[in-house]
Structure formats: C-alpha cells, structure tokens
Amino acid sequence: MAINNQEMQSKILEAFNFRHATKVFDPAKKIADDEFNTILEAARLSPSSFGFEPWQILVVQTPEKRELFRDFAWGANGAFNGTAGQLGTASHFLIFLAHTDVNQTHNSEYQQKFMKEVKQLPDDVIGFINQAFQKFQEHDFKIEGQRQITDWAGKQAYIAAGNVMSVAALMGIDSCPIEGFEMDKTSAVLEQHFGIDPKVYQPAVMVALGYRADEPPFEKTRRTMDQVVSWF
C-alpha cells in the first residue's frame, strides 16, 4: 500500500527525532547485510558539486584495524565516558575520504576519465564542463591549492555522510558522525595499513552505525524554526 504524503512526513520527522549522536552501541546487535547495502547505496547515489563524487568510503570491520585509530580518534574511543566507544561497539564503522587536488583540480586526468567512463559524456560536453569547473575553481569560489580543494571535496563527502545517517534513521538504525580524530595520525595509519595515498586522499569524517546500547540521556534540543529560517 502506498504511503500518503502525510504519513511520509510523519515517518521522516519521527526518524530525525529518533536519530542522535550515539556514543555507545550494543555490540551484540549487527546491521543486516541488505540494510547496510541500502545505506551504502544512499551514499553512492548522493549528489555532489558538478557530479564529481569526490569521495571514497572505507568500511572498517576488522577489530584489529579499528584499534589502529584508538589512541588518537578521541571522538570514537570512549575516552569521555569510560567505554570502548564507537570504535569498539559499532556494528559498522565508515571512514569517508576526500579527494585532494591531485584528482579534483580542473582538467585533471582523473576528472577526464570520470566524465568519459562514469558519466559517459561526449567530448564537447566534457570540454564545456572543463571550462565551467575551471571558472568555478579559479574565479567563482576561488578554490585553489591542496588544502582548499580537499576541503571542498570534504564538503561533498559530508552530503553522502548525511544521507547515510538519515537513511539509517529511517530504518531504525543509530549513527554518529565523528570529527574527533587527529588528522595527521589518521592519514599516516591509512597510508601504512590501508594503502591510502595521502597525496590523493585525506580523511574527511567518520561515521559509526549500529544500535544504541541505551537511550540518549538528554532530549534533543535545536533552535526554533524562526531562529533558523528567514523568509523574504
């Protein structure tokens, strides 16, 4: 039976009120494979600037691999609550990587291949997009250099990460976005133990997924709609 708009609105708001930054998951409860694949598909189908999808996703499931981040991933190691944290309890643990300037500078070899093989665009359209993206980077947003381009790619990764958490919430699955980690040490571990070239990819955000061990200790608080939104 089709869900009418009112029912859909209710379910969406219920999911967003359900979602909270889960600090400790129930380690005995695991996300079913088909549900997790749906979550990943939501990330894959997420929008991005110019449609370039400048992110990669690592799914870190091996306990030994997760432990490599424990000493410096202070937002996920449970140091603030005396637990094993998200690293030790989450059903699934994701690391979103942002592409650097190596891939995402206008006219890069990566972008040319992406537009031809993934987007399957004709040469004349690729030429137009190259010109438009160069103007966007150099003039409109002034995104030039390794740091600025990587930060831009990280913004796109956050769109995918947001969709991951929203879709999870709609399925009754908990999540937590994590920026609490030391960038340089994380990048070094990714290079040494995961084969990630830090010149090409940099960590943007981590997302833990699973089922909450306990109910959140506080009610959700947000600014009012009038404080957030202005109409003109």
Rank of each mutant, 00 (worst) to 15 (best):
K30G: 07
T186L: 06
R66K: 13
Q134D: 12
L94Q: 05
N37M: 13
P54F: 00
T89P: 09
G78Q: 09
I31W: 00
D197I: 05
K155T: 06
N81G: 02
G154A: 05
Q131A: 14
G127A: 11
A160K: 04
A98Y: 07
W55I: 03
K119T: 10
G172K: 02
T105V: 08
F136T: 02
L45D: 12
N77F: 03
I3M: 15
F128E: 15
L58Q: 08
M171C: 09
N37A: 13
P177L: 00
Q120C: 12
A90G: 10
F80D: 12
L45Y: 08
F16P: 05
D184N: 03
M183W: 00
L190Y: 08
A98C: 07
N103F: 13
D151I: 04
I149R: 09
Q146C: 05
D151F: 05
F72S: 00
H193G: 11
N5G: 15
K135L: 08
T186F: 05
R66S: 05
L45Q: 14
V200E: 14
F136W: 04
S187L: 02
K142G: 07
V60K: 07
M1W: 00
F232Y: 12
E179K: 04
S91D: 13
E67T: 06
Q137K: 05
M8T: 14
K23M: 13
E41F: 03
P216V: 01
P63D: 07
L13E: 12
E191R: 10
F93C: 04
Y201Q: 11
W231H: 14
D197V: 07
R212H: 10
H92C: 08
H193I: 08
K23S: 15
G75A: 01
N17I: 04
D174C: 04
A188W: 00
T62M: 10
E67S: 00
I95M: 03
I149P: 02
P27I: 07
K29R: 13
A2V: 12
A2W: 06
F128R: 14
A168K: 09
L190W: 02
S91N: 10
P177E: 11
F50D: 08
K11C: 12
R66W: 06
L58I: 06
Q192N: 14
H106S: 14
F72M: 04
M1D: 14
G75I: 01
D123W: 01
L40N: 12
A168D: 07
F52G: 02
R19S: 10
G88C: 11
E7Y: 10
V59A: 02
K23A: 15
Y110R: 05
Q86F: 08
Q104G: 10
D71N: 08
S10H: 15
S175I: 01
G78S: 02
W55D: 02
I149Y: 02
F16W: 09
Q61W: 01
E182Y: 00
R19V: 08
M115F: 13
L209T: 07
F50T: 07
E117N: 15
P203F: 00
F25A: 09
A204R: 09
P217T: 01
V189N: 00
D140G: 03
G172M: 03
L190V: 04
F133C: 06
A79Y: 08
Q148N: 14
D226P: 09
F218P: 05
G195W: 03
K113I: 14
N17V: 05
D197W: 05
K30S: 09
E67H: 01
Q56W: 00
G162F: 00
E7C: 10
D34V: 06
